[in-house]
Simulated assay, not measured.
Amino acid sequence: MIRILLLDDHPVLRHGVRSLLETQSDFEVVAEAGSVEEAAATTQVIDVALVDIDLGDDVPDGIEGIRAILRTRADTRVLVFTAYDSDADIVRALDAGAVGYLVKDSRPADLFSAIRTAADGGRLLEGPIGARLLERIDRPEDVLTARELEVLRLAASGLSNRDLARELHVSEATVKTHLHHAFIKLSADNRQAAIAVAVKRGIIRL
Rank of each mutant, 00 (worst) to 15 (best):
residue 116 R to T: 08
residue 183 F to M: 11
residue 121 G to F: 01
residue 202 G to W: 10
residue 192 Q to S: 10
residue 114 A to G: 07
residue 93 A to T: 07
residue 53 I to P: 10
residue 47 D to P: 05
residue 90 I to R: 04
residue 2 I to C: 03
residue 117 T to I: 12
residue 200 K to E: 15
residue 86 S to G: 04
residue 9 D to Q: 03
residue 28 E to P: 08
residue 4 I to M: 01
residue 145 T to Q: 01
residue 131 A to G: 08
residue 13 L to N: 02
residue 149 L to I: 06
residue 110 D to T: 15
residue 13 L to K: 07
residue 96 A to I: 01
residue 156 A to D: 13
residue 171 S to D: 12
residue 144 L to K: 03
residue 10 H to G: 04
residue 115 I to N: 02
residue 115 I to W: 00
residue 121 G to Y: 04
residue 161 N to P: 00
residue 78 V to S: 02
residue 127 G to H: 13
residue 171 S to K: 05
residue 165 A to G: 08
residue 29 V to L: 05
residue 142 D to M: 11
residue 84 Y to S: 04
residue 27 F to T: 01
residue 23 T to M: 12
residue 37 E to A: 15
residue 79 L to N: 09
residue 91 V to I: 14
residue 143 V to A: 09
residue 51 V to K: 07
residue 143 V to W: 11
residue 79 L to S: 08
residue 143 V to T: 14
residue 157 S to M: 08
residue 77 R to S: 13
residue 49 A to W: 01
residue 60 P to K: 09
residue 49 A to C: 06
residue 97 G to C: 02
residue 196 A to L: 11
residue 164 L to E: 07
residue 138 D to K: 12
residue 72 T to N: 12
residue 107 R to C: 04
residue 96 A to C: 09
residue 15 H to L: 14
residue 117 T to C: 08
residue 4 I to H: 11
residue 124 L to M: 15
residue 43 T to K: 13
residue 20 L to A: 06
residue 113 S to W: 07
residue 175 V to D: 05
residue 203 I to K: 05
residue 166 R to T: 14
residue 122 G to N: 10
residue 113 S to A: 15
residue 205 R to N: 12
residue 72 T to H: 13
residue 173 A to M: 08
residue 196 A to N: 07
residue 42 T to Y: 02
residue 194 A to Q: 05
residue 3 R to M: 02
residue 40 A to G: 02
residue 153 R to E: 14
residue 153 R to Y: 05
residue 100 G to D: 11
residue 151 V to W: 06
residue 188 A to K: 00
residue 72 T to G: 03
residue 40 A to L: 02
residue 21 L to C: 03
residue 80 V to F: 08
residue 58 D to M: 13
residue 148 E to F: 06
residue 104 K to G: 12
residue 45 V to L: 13
residue 192 Q to M: 06
residue 88 A to H: 11
residue 192 Q to V: 08
residue 29 V to S: 08
residue 57 D to P: 07
residue 133 L to F: 06
residue 100 G to L: 02
residue 140 P to W: 05
residue 39 A to V: 01
residue 6 L to D: 09
residue 169 H to Y: 13
residue 4 I to P: 10
residue 86 S to C: 00
residue 112 F to W: 06
residue 4 I to D: 07
